[in-house]
């Protein structure tokens, strides 16, 4: 594919910088950018998973060193995530055969970005105003108050996370993340982290390590499945993305420590909404060439 090497490296670095700044994976930004560049969505999604594997390896190793990882919770998340991943790759292949892959990816991104973007925007504006008025942020729930779905059967004790909850909602969450990750080329950190924090109220110090562990395992499997079932992984592109992303993320993380969190959450929300809008336009605007061509090799 004739795409400039420097452009990919630069984009990888820029997205890596943003991901380091906000402490997110960056897959959900990189995959759409690759699609806008003209790389087929199938290749963009499958190849981006290699970059997610690399960045989550770095995070997991760091978390292991700081002992900020709940192995048991991580294992449960991985179990659900793997099933979700396998379903996702299978779904990906089926939709691609039916010729609707591009549509599914674009529609999913529009939905995801609009929902997550508006939630973040709402949150950051609220945070901003509370700080302005000199008030402190109230906790969302009082101690001892639990949502009913945490008391479903099959409860399990997670010592490291100080949790005693049903495994069913945890498995459902990780199943969804694994599925979405395989179909959209995202790690899902930006969904898992808030979910673990706010829904399950896992302590902050183990959240990132644990979710990165889950992302590492499921994306690794998704990457290999994509290579085998869809043959959509481009190793050269993957190396470029990884090199750009890994270094960008480190500088982003360093920079992020000196910046105001709520302002940047606001900017990220705007960014998400903008990318979502860009995708929506692609669906609505009349295509210049309504016909498209796909070839399948006849192998003897």
């Amino acid at each position: 594919m004739p795409v400039s090497v420097l452009l990919i490296l630069g984009m990888g670095a820029a997205v890596g910088f943003i991901s380091g700044l906000f402490g997110i994976g960056g897959g959900f930004l990189m995959t759409p950018l690759l699609i806008f560049l003209g790389i087929p969505p199938a290749v963009a999604v499958a190849t981006q998973s290699a970059q997610i594997v690399a960045s989550s390896t770095t995070s997991v190793l760091g978390a292991l060193r700081r002992n900020a990882l709940d192995h048991k919770l991580g294992a449960m998340l991985v179990a659900g995530g793997l099933i979700g991943s396998a379903l996702g790759v299978w779904f990906f292949a089926a939709v691609r055969r039916a010729g609707q892959l591009d549509l599914v990816i674009v529609v999913s991104y529009v939905t995801l970005f609009t929902v997550v973007g508006s939630l973040m925007l709402k949150e950051s504006i609220r945070e901003f105003w509370t700080k302005r008025r000199g008030g402190t942020l109230r906790l969302r729930r009082q101690a001892g108050e639990h949502a009913s779905y945490l008391r479903w059967p099959l409860r399990m004790r997670f010592y490291r996370s100080k949790l005693y909850v049903s495994v069913i909602p945890i498995l459902l969450l990780s199943l969804f993340i694994g599925f979405a990750g395989a179909v959209l080329g995202i790690g899902g950190g930006f969904i898992v982290v808030p979910a673990l924090l706010y829904i399950f109220r896992v302590p902050t110090n183990v959240v990132v390590g644990t979710s990165q562990f889950q992302i590492f395992c499921t994306t690794l499997v998704a990457l290999i499945l994509h290579a085998v079932m869809n043959q959509a992984v481009d190793m050269v592109l993957a190396i470029l993305l990884i090199i750009g992303g890994v270094f960008g993320a480190q500088f982003g993380a360093r920079m992020g420590r000196n910046l105001r969190a709520e302002l940047f959450r606001f900017l990220l929300a705007i960014l998400l909404l903008a990318v979502g809008l860009r995708f929506a336009l692609e669906l609505v605007i009349e295509p210049q060439e309504p016909f498209s061509l796909t070839a399948q090799e006849r192998r003897q």
Partner: peptide, 19 residues
């Protein structure tokens, strides 16, 4: 399969290197 495994190994290597 070998290609997928190689890509995965490469990604892990770069991740480790960065850490």
């Amino acid at each position: 399969l070998a290609y997928g495994l190689a890509t995965a190994a490469m990604a892990i290597f770069f991740g480790w290197l960065a850490s």
